[in-house]
């Protein structure tokens, strides 16, 4: 199962935390903190697998990845600091709205334009600044809610930086690993990462994401789009549902 999560996570750039935490808690009876620690570890595993599969292919846009990772990390850090000040209901609804908007924006654009790379030579400075600001804001949201970073990463890179979807998904997997490391340290030090319990999940994710990475380098962008859109729509619905269920 974790191998399947790895394939999907690598192929879409979503990481898989949204799928893994419920799987580990509801399916295997792990404590929520152990499941969250294992999920972070699996995000690192996704980066390891995708990195092995895509090393030297140029699919990961390194120049875009570094400033975006920095913005996202600072945003997530800030998000964790201000957690508790902002009503969660608003955050869930806002997150769901952004994800819903992403689906609508992608559906509204013609498929050929959707699958194309950057228009014209290079990405303009204005788009880069907008992407960095959006990634910092996305980092704050995902830091506050603890999930959903992957969907926002891919949306920002694809819609604002106009990276092709496979490249956005590969670059997003790179960002996951970096961001997960910061949170993982605390879980590890607290003893919430149980090596024997985590080992099968990590192995599955590393192998699955290696296969997912190889697929990502070969499959057409429309396949990635077909996998990405329903998952983001599902995340949007889940966020709205939680927003409506959560109190002020």
């Amino acid at each position: 199962m974790s191998a399947a999560v790895g394939v999907v996570g690598a192929l879409t750039g979503l990481g898989g935390g949204v799928l893994l935490v419920p799987l580990l808690t509801l399916g295997f009876g792990l404590d929520i903190r152990t499941a969250a620690g294992t999920s972070l570890l699996c995000l690192v595993g996704t980066q390891v697998g995708v990195g092995q599969a895509l090393r030297g292919t140029g699919l990961v846009d390194e120049r875009a990845a570094v400033p975006l990772a920095l913005a996202s990390l600072c945003g997530a850090w800030l998000g964790a600091e201000v957690a508790g000040w902002v009503p969660r209901r608003i955050l869930y609804l806002l997150f769901g709205g952004i994800m819903g908007g992403t689906v609508v924006a992608m559906l509204a654009r013609p498929v050929q334009q959707e699958l194309a790379g950057p228009q014209g030579p290079g990405t303009s400075a204005a788009r880069q600044v907008a992407a960095i600001a959006s990634m910092a804001a996305a980092g704050v949201l995902s830091g506050l809610l603890g999930i959903g970073g992957g969907a926002l990463n891919v949306a920002v890179m694809h819609l604002i930086l106009q990276l092709p979807l496979p490249s956005a998904a590969a670059t997003s997997s790179f960002l996951h690993g970096v961001k997960a490391l910061a949170g993982l340290a605390a879980y590890w030090a607290r003893g919430d990462v149980a090596p024997l319990q985590a080992a099968p999940a990590v192995l599955g994710v590393v192998w699955g994401s290696t296969w997912g990475g190889r697929l990502l380098a070969r499959v057409p962008g429309r396949v990635v789009r077909a996998a990405f859109l329903p998952l983001v729509a599902w995340v949007a619905v889940q966020m709205f549902r939680r927003g409506l269920q959560t109190g002020w």
Binding site: L41, V44, G45, Q47, V48, G51, G177, V178, L181, L184, W188, V193, P195, L196, A198, A199, V202, V206
Partner: peptide, 13 residues
């Protein structure tokens, strides 16, 4: 397994 996981954590760095 702990040593292996620690090794994997080092990979992104």
């Amino acid at each position: 397994a702990g040593v292996g996981i620690a090794g994997l954590i080092c990979v992104p760095v």
